[in-house]
């Protein structure tokens, strides 16, 4: 199946998040709730709001963004920020890197939500795009990101170095890739 990587999230993609992605995610969460959890145990901070989310992605358009389309549907989104932080790994500490602010695949591609994920490869494609973007910036493929807990295995599989839980960023685990790790993955 031919997929297309676009180096900009546009209005059409945001609308797809709102109309295609978010209802599915919400449905999934409703099902979790319906599986017998009483009202008192509902998410305590159920203030998550899809409009906020789309607005936030909208606000990110100033940065380098990527979207993957396949069969007319939005399959994945990524946002890169080249000025957020510097490398933390001792061997490249203080050097510039391209930081992945946000990457997500469509709910129907997510093993945790869909019993049969439709497309695999959004993650690996985005990581490759992140590496190429870093190279374009002259950062030799160095990238960094904060993985969600359920995705840590994937980033470890990509050969990134695990620098542990980052207490300064929602207790998410921070991963960093060196230029040689980037060469290994893209080779």
């Amino acid at each position: 199946m031919a997929a297309e990587l676009l180096d900009r999230i546009d209005e059409l993609h945001l609308r797809a998040v709102e109309t295609d992605w978010i209802p599915q995610i919400i449905n999934h969460i409703r099902q979790l709730i319906d599986q017998g959890q009483p009202r008192q145990t509902w998410p305590q901070s159920w203030h998550w709001n899809w409009r906020d989310k789309v607005d936030r992605i909208n606000g990110l358009l100033a940065f380098q963004t990527f979207a993957i389309m396949c069969e007319g549907q939005l399959q994945g989104l990524m946002q890169m920020n080249s000025a957020r932080s510097l490398c933390r790994l001792p061997e490249q500490a203080g050097k510039h890197l391209a930081y992945v602010d946000y990457v997500e695949t469509a709910p129907w591609n997510r093993p945790n939500i869909a019993s049969k994920p439709r497309y695999r490869g959004v993650g690996i494609t985005m990581i490759r795009a992140a590496i190429e973007h870093s190279r374009d910036l002259g950062f030799h493929g160095r990238i960094g990101l904060h993985s969600l807990p359920q995705s840590e295995t994937f980033y470890a599989n990509c050969g990134m170095t695990d620098l542990g839980i980052d207490g300064t960023y929602e207790n998410l685990r921070y991963f960093e890739m060196t230029s040689s790790q980037a060469d290994a993955l893209s080779g």
Binding site: Q79, V103, E104, P111, P117, S151, F154, L172
Partner: peptide, 15 residues
């Protein structure tokens, strides 16, 4: 990638 989730960044977090 296998059957792993790939989401990163707090914005990707589900409620």
């Amino acid at each position: 990638e296998g059957d792993h989730e790939i989401a990163a960044g707090a914005l990707a977090r589900d409620p």
